[in-house]
Design a protein around this nucleic acid. Structure first.
Length: 482
DNA sequence: ATGTAC
């Protein structure tokens, strides 16, 4: 396969680069990279750009194959990628969504200030760790079987709210109100349901976490006020997805799609791009299952919010107040949306893999309270650095199908990170910086700050590109990991 | 990411 070299990439505007369609004859659209030169140079040596070019070959892809500045290699598609295909006959590809269907983040805001929480940080960390199971394969206190699981898969976050995890007001602050209507549990295998049966309310491992932060800086006073963020305020960030259930949904449907592909005469440069027409039987089966797994993930994050609230109340009592949900947004998902393409406005299937929806002001997908501000875009950084709250801006519609980056983005593989990092030492270093970390040494090593790109650089790139606006910077105080 | 490899 022809490797992408710097000479093959044209700069088309500040922080926007293009690999033209002429680069390889199987490309159907150009490939575009949102990055500054430093971030671009970092990805020339790995497979990110080859994968980006491969995605440009998908049947029905519109306008361009895109990557955000936090891009890195993934299964078939790069992580940090966006691909929109023609609805209804264009491709749907599980690799464009990822194994962790509806991996996403939610942010809660507390009424407490940094100083008030700092005094009790040890206790709070212990309590969060006790309330929220983490780690590979770890189960939680709730068990959902048979009909009840089908209800979770259909209702999403609402299922948890009905059982006392959070309140009805939360729903409007979740992307799609925490429920995709096309979910059909009938397309989720018994094995997938079984793997998820005891995993509601658990964070899993890898980059998943529950983190306590304080607002270190406000960049946009008006939007911050709209979102209810103030300097010094303590917030809680939750990052997890659909656990073993979503993973099994991806596994099952990738397998059946691979078998079905010849029937549709689809040929692709990489078998990991497996896809079928969205409106084919296999495409619809996967889509319904993917929506169900997405609902499971929203339910999972909602149950975790309940665990966080319990820990909060235990440590701070009634005076600690509530943890209002600021927003919950997915970054591994496919959606049918209307966007402007080379055909004008039309329906497309937007694959976001390690990319966050970032709708600008005026979108009717936003809660009323945020209509003028734009959608909150939550960007978790790495463990010891910082995270950001951004607001979706108008240019995201023009440039990225209403999408933005999803984090700092890996620069080292998990294995490379483990080789370079001494976890006990890192844990102690972070403690000396005032950051308490609970998690396995393996998890801590794999997620070390050195394993990630510079989140400040990533965020500056998306802001300069105009797809999102900086609202606030969050500094970690305590992290619970798998 | 993931009962860390069909």
């Amino acid at each position: 396969m022809k490797k992408v070299k710097k000479d093959d990439i044209q700069k088309i505007e500040e922080y926007l680069w293009e690999i033209p369609k002429s680069f390889r004859e199987d490309m159907r659209v150009p490939a575009r990279i949102l990055a500054n030169e430093t971030l671009l140079d970092d990805i020339l040596d790995d497979r990110s750009l080859s994968q980006l070019v491969n995605v440009a070959c998908l049947p029905g892809i519109k306008k361009a194959s895109l990557v955000m500045p936090d891009v890195h290699e993934g299964y078939g598609f790069p992580i940090g990628g966006v691909a929109a295909t023609a609805h209804p006959e264009g491709a749907i590809s599980p690799g464009g969504i990822g194994y962790d269907i509806n991996c996403g983040v939610r942010l809660h805001v507390s009424k407490l200030q940094r100083e008030e929480v700092e005094n009790r940080l040890e206790d709070l960390t212990k309590e969060l760790n006790a309330q929220i199971p983490s780690g590979m394969g770890k189960g939680g206190p709730i068990k959902v079987y048979a009909d009840e699981m089908d209800e979770v898969l259909t209702k999403g976050a609402e299922w948890a709210i009905e059982r006392g995890y959070g309140s009805k007001e939360d729903l409007q602050f979740i992307e799609n109100n925490g429920r995709l209507p096309f979910a059909d549990p009938g397309y989720v295998s018994a094995m997938a349901k079984n793997r998820g049966a005891d995993q509601l309310g658990t964070i899993g491992s890898g980059n998943h976490f529950v983190e306590v932060d304080y607002v270190e800086e406000i960049y946009d006073d008006i939007i911050a006020q709209t979102y209810g963020l103030q300097k010094g305020q303590v917030v809680v960030l939750i990052h997890t997805g659909s656990r073993g259930l979503g993973h099994q949904v991806a596994t099952d449907h990738i397998r059946s799609m691979m078998a079905a592909m010849p029937k549709y005469g689809i040929q692709l440069p990489d078998r990991e791009l497996t896809c079928v027409p969205f409106n084919s039987e296999e495409g619809q089966d996967y889509f319904k299952a993917m929506c169900a797994a997405a609902n499971f993930a929203w339910c999972n994050r909602q149950v975790i919010s309940g665990g966080v609230a319990n820990a909060w109340q235990t440590v701070f009592g009634k005076d600690g107040g509530q943890l209002r949900l600021l927003y919950d947004v997915a970054h591994n998902i496919a959606k049918v949306e209307t966007h402007t393409t080379e055909d004008g406005p039309r329906k497309v299937i937007v694959h976001r893999k390690g990319a966050t929806r970032a709708f600008g002001p005026g979108s009717d997908e936003l809660p009323e309270a945020y209509a003028k501000a734009g959608q909150p875009v939550i960007i978790p950084g790495s463990m010891g650095t910082c995270s950001y709250v951004l607001a979706g801006a108008p240019k995201s519609e023009e440039m990225t199908f209403g999408s933005c980056c999803h984090g700092a983005g890996r620069r080292l593989s998990r294995t490379a990170a483990k080789k370079q990092v001494n976890a006990p030492v890192l844990k102690q270093e972070l403690r000396e910086k005032g950051i308490l970390v609970e998690g396995s040494y393996r998890g801590i090593a794999e997620e070390a700050p050195i394993a990630y790109k510079d989140v400040d650089l990533v965020v500056d790139t998306v802001e300069t590109s105009g797809i999102a606006k900086k609202v606030a910077k969050l500094k970690p105080m305590a992290v619970i990991k798998g």
